[in-house]
């Protein structure tokens, strides 16, 4: 039983990351927590198929992602009119140079097709390598890279970022290097 106690502790430790990924996919807190619950139950059942020493987080993310997509399929694809939404809300705040509100960012993220959203989240936020992310999403590394690239381009467009220069390299450098200045 010692082994399953360790497994349980490891699962507990992974819950915050799982919830964050679930929220990124489902964009809804209740759905996200249901996803996490289902994932934990499946993970518990499949415990013996997990190889200790390998990346538990990646293994769990793979399960959660599969649960998410099979639910989507069952629900008969609740509209995926991201292009229509995109057109309507393109460049929401063209006048807000240099300031990017977190709510606007989240709204923009919601407009991405799920495959692009998960790609940019896995790479840009969850800390996975392209190889790991490709494994999780069961696609080629090149596919993962192009999804991230398209996601970035779309976000840039939606948010009306004309180029990194808009955010002022000075401002960025000051933020990042500020502490190292004498």
């Amino acid at each position: 039983m010692a082994q399953s106690a360790t497994f349980k502790t490891d699962l507990l430790g992974a819950i915050p990351a799982l919830r964050a990924f679930a929220m990124s996919l489902a964009q809804n807190a209740d759905k996200a927590d249901d996803l996490v619950q289902e994932t934990l139950m499946k993970a518990w059942d499949k415990q013996s198929s997990f190889q200790p020493g390998t990346n538990l987080k990646a293994w769990l993310f793979t399960i959660l992602r599969n649960v998410f997509y099979s639910q989507m399929r069952k629900r008969g694809r609740e509209v995926q009119d991201s292009d229509g939404v995109m057109t309507a809300r393109l460049a929401m705040h063209p006048d807000q140079e240099g300031s990017l509100d977190l709510k606007d960012f989240q709204a923009a993220l919601e407009m991405l097709p799920p495959d692009q959203r998960e790609a940019i989240i896995l790479i840009g936020a969850s800390g996975f390598s392209y190889e790991e992310a490709a494994d999780i999403c069961d696609c080629a590394v090149g596919t993962m890279k192009s999804r991230v690239s398209r996601a970035r381009d779309r976000l840039t467009k939606i948010l009306g970022i004309v180029g990194e220069a808009d955010f002022g390299p000075d401002a960025i450098n000051t933020q990042v290097l500020g502490s190292s200045q004498p």
């Binding site: 990124s24 940019i120 890279k145 976000l155």
Partner: peptide, 19 residues
């Protein structure tokens, strides 16, 4: 393709960090 220090990369981390 994302780049570590673009506005979008930093916003992503902020968004995810909150979650």
């Amino acid at each position: 393709p994302l780049g570590a220090n673009t506005a979008i990369a930093r916003k992503l981390k902020e968004y995810y960090g909150g979650l």
